[in-house]
Design a protein around this nucleic acid. Structure first.
Lengths: 364, 364
DNA sequence: TTGAAAGCGCTAACAG
DNA sequence: CTGTTAGCGCTTTCAA
C-alpha cells in the first residue's frame, strides 16, 4: 500500500520518461493543476468556460496560469477534441492586392474570435494548390477557403472526400460542388461594355495580361466582348500581354494598341494595375484621356482615384467575400451563431452572389 | 486463449468507443497499416523516410494510402513528436506590399520543403501582436518570425520565455535580444540625403505619413535629416501626413509643401506609395520633376519604373529578409542543413545586415 | 462543481 | 527491416 502510494506520488512529481528523453520542458495543464491544487480536467473546464468552476478555484487557477506562464498546447487540444479553430485559405498570390484585401478582411473579421488563419499561396499553380490543400486538410481545419472554382481533378476529388467545410471564392459556377461566394465576372464585363456604349464609343479593345492563366479575367473579357458585339455589332479587339500582371503590361498594351491599323476610342482593362500602366504611358505620349481614349477597368485599387484623370473602374466586393466565406465556415460549426444576416446559406453548395459597383471618374 | 484472441481481433476491427461517440470517421494510419498488412509504425516510418522500409512493403503501403485516400493527422504527429513543421509569421499588414513580398518569398522558399506558414496580421497594433504571438506559440511552431524589433513588454517577456526560435525582421537594433535580419533604415536615409546633396539640391523635405506609428520610417527620416543637416548646414523640413499610408498622402503632402514659405527643390518620401501620389499631383499642377522638384523614395515597388519620370528609389531586400528569416529557423532545426551560405548565423541574437540598393531614375 | 479514466492519432525508442 | 510499447497534452464522458 505504501509502495503504491509512493509510486503515485512520484508519478505526479517527476517528468515522464518520454519528456525526460526529449528534454521537453513545456508547462502543461498538469503543472497548472498541481499549482492550483485542482485536477487537470478542472483547469480544462476553466479554460473553455471560466464560469463553469467555482469562483475560488477559478482564481486559484488563474493565479497558477499567470505564475507559470502557461500556454496551452493547441495540438493536444485539437487532437483530443478532433477539431481545431483553424481556418485554411489558399490564394493564387499574396502579393495580388485583391486577394490580400480578402485575406486581410478575413483576419479582421476573425479578430478576437480565437480562430487562426492558415494561409497558402499557390502561385497560380494547380499542382501547388493541390499540395497545399492536402497539407492544410491534415491540420483538421474547421474549413478550407479556396480561391476560384476550378481545381485539378485530384484536388477536386480530395475536396469532395473530406468532411471539412469547403468554400470557393471570387468565382461562381453553374452547378457548384461546394459553397461559393463571389460575383459574376461575366457581368462585370457586361457592365463595362454598356458603360462605354452609352458614352457613344465606337471602337473598343479589351486589354489583359496572361489571359490563358487568368480564368476570371477571361470571363470578364467574354462578358465585355459578347455584350459589345451585341450592342455595337462589332467584336472588340483583344490585347493579351504575356507575363505576370504589372503596370508594365499596360505600357506594352498601349504600344500594341497604337500599332494596330484602327484607332481605338476606348479600352476596358482587365484590372487597375494594367490600366495604371496604360494611362501613364498615354500621358507620356500625349494621348488625351478621356477625349482621345476612354479607359475603364476593374479593381478600384487605392491609386485609382489619384491618377489623372481619375480611373473609372468596377469595384469588386473583396472584403465582403472574405467575410462571407468565414461566415459560412463558422456557421457550419454549431458552436457559432450566424454573423452576417440576411443571406440564406443553406445547403452544402449554396451560392452567395455579391454586388459590384461601377465607380465613374474622369477616365471615361 | 480463444477469447483473448477474439478480443484482440475485435479491437482491431471496430472503431474505438470514443471514435464511435464522436462520429469521427477519419482514415488513420492504423487503417492504412491493416490494409497494407504491416504495423502502424512501419507506415509511420515509410511516411517519414520511404527508403527506410523494404521495397515490397513500401509499395503495399503506397497502394493502401492511395486506396484509402489517407491524409495524415498533423496534430497527432506534432503532438507525438513535440514539434511541428509550422513557421509562424506576424506582419503589421498583409496589404502592405513590402510585407506581402517578404511573406510571399518565405512561402516560395519553403515550397516543397513541407513546412507551413501560419500568418498573422497585427494591424500595426502591439496588443494584437501580443495576442497573435501567444496563440501562435500554442501551435508549437518551429519558429516565430516577428516584424520589427519593438514589442509590448508582455510580448517581449513571452518571446523571451519560449523555447521557440524567434526572428525579428525588417529592423536592426543596438543590443538585440533575438536573432535579427534586416538593414539599417538610418543608412537608407543617409543615402538619400547624400544623393540629393551630390545633385546640388539646396532646400529639401522629408515626406511621410503616420510617422508616430511607423518607427522604421521615423528612422529613415532621422538618417536623412541628420545627414542633410551635416552636409548642407540646415535641417530638412518634415511633412507628416496623418492617416494610413496611401497615394493620397502624397497628394496632400505636395499641397502642404507648396503652402510653405520656402520653395523646395527636392523631397525624400518615406515610401513609393507616397511618392507616387506626390508625383502624380505634381504632374497635375505642372510642376516639373526633376527640374523644379527632385523626388527620391524608398521601396522600388513595381510601378516605380513606369512613373514619368521614373522614380529614383532605394530598394529594400524584401525577399532576402524572408529567406534569411526562414533559413535561421530551419538552421536551428538540426534536421536541416544551412540553406543560404556565407553568413555566420551563430548565436541566439546574431544579426544579418542586408544590403539595399539605390535605383536612380529620372525623378532625381 | 469536481475528478478519474479513456482515449484523440501519431512518433520514437527499443527489442527482435 | 519490422513490430511492440509507451507516451505527447489535452478533451470529454461519467460518476461521485
Amino acid at each position: 500500500m505504501m509502495v503504491l502510494k509512493r509510486q503515485i506520488t512520484s508519478h505526479l512529481n517527476k517528468k515522464s520518461k518520454t519528456r525526460q528523453r526529449r528534454g521537453t520542458n513545456r508547462t502543461t495543464m498538469q503543472d497548472v493543476a498541481k499549482q492550483a491544487q485542482v485536477s487537470a480536467s478542472t483547469v480544462s473546464l476553466y479554460l473553455r468556460d471560466p464560469k463553469g468552476v467555482s469562483p475560488s478555484k477559478a482564481s486559484q487557477i488563474k493565479a497558477a496560469i499567470d505564475k507559470l506562464n502557461y500556454v496551452p498546447n493547441l495540438l493536444a487540444g485539437g487532437l483530443a477534441a478532433t477539431k481545431t479553430r483553424v481556418i485554411a485559405v489558399i490564394v493564387p498570390s499574396l502579393t495580388n492586392a485583391f486577394f490580400a484585401q480578402t485575406v486581410s478582411a478575413m483576419q479582421r473579421y476573425l479578430d478576437q474570435k480565437g480562430y487562426q488563419l492558415l494561409i497558402g499561396d499557390s502561385d497560380y499553380d494547380e499542382d501547388k494548390e493541390y499540395e497545399l490543400a492536402k497539407t492544410f486538410l491534415a491540420w483538421s481545419p474547421l474549413g478550407l477557403v479556396m480561391t476560384g472554382a476550378k481545381h485539378s481533378d485530384a484536388c477536386e476529388r480530395l475536396l469532395k472526400s473530406t468532411q471539412t467545410k469547403i468554400v470557393q471564392t471570387w468565382e461562381l459556377t453553374a452547378s457548384p460542388d461546394f459553397f461559393q461566394v463571389g460575383f459574376s465576372h461575366y457581368n462585370v464585363g457586361r457592365l463595362a461594355a454598356s458603360h462605354l456604349f452609352s458614352l457613344g464609343k465606337k471602337k473598343v479593345a479589351y486589354v489583359a495580361a496572361n489571359l490563358s492563366f487568368d480564368r476570371r479575367a477571361t470571363e470578364r473579357g467574354q462578358g465585355f466582348c459578347e455584350t459589345w458585339d451585341r450592342l455595337a455589332k462589332e467584336p472588340p479587339t483583344i490585347i493579351d500581354i504575356e507575363g505576370q500582371v504589372s503596370p508594365v503590361s499596360g505600357v506594352k498594351a498601349l504600344s500594341e494598341l497604337l500599332s494596330q491599323a484602327q484607332a481605338f476610342d476606348a479600352v476596358f482593362c482587365s484590372n487597375d494595375i494594367i490600366a495604371m500602366g496604360l494611362m501613364l504611358e498615354a500621358t507620356r505620349r500625349d494621348i488625351n484621356i478621356p477625349n482621345t481614349l476612354s479607359v475603364i477597368s476593374f479593381g478600384d485599387l487605392p491609386f485609382a482615384e489619384i491618377l489623372s484623370p481619375g480611373l473609372t473602374t468596377i469595384r469588386p466586393p473583396s472584403e465582403l467575400i472574405g467575410q462571407h466565406a468565414i461566415d459560412a465556415i463558422l456557421d457550419s460549426d454549431t458552436q457559432n451563431p450566424r454573423l452576417l444576416q440576411g443571406l440564406s446559406k443553406e445547403g452544402k453548395n449554396a451560392q452567395v452572389d455579391l454586388a459590384f459597383e461601377l465607380v465613374i471618374r474622369g477616365s471615361s
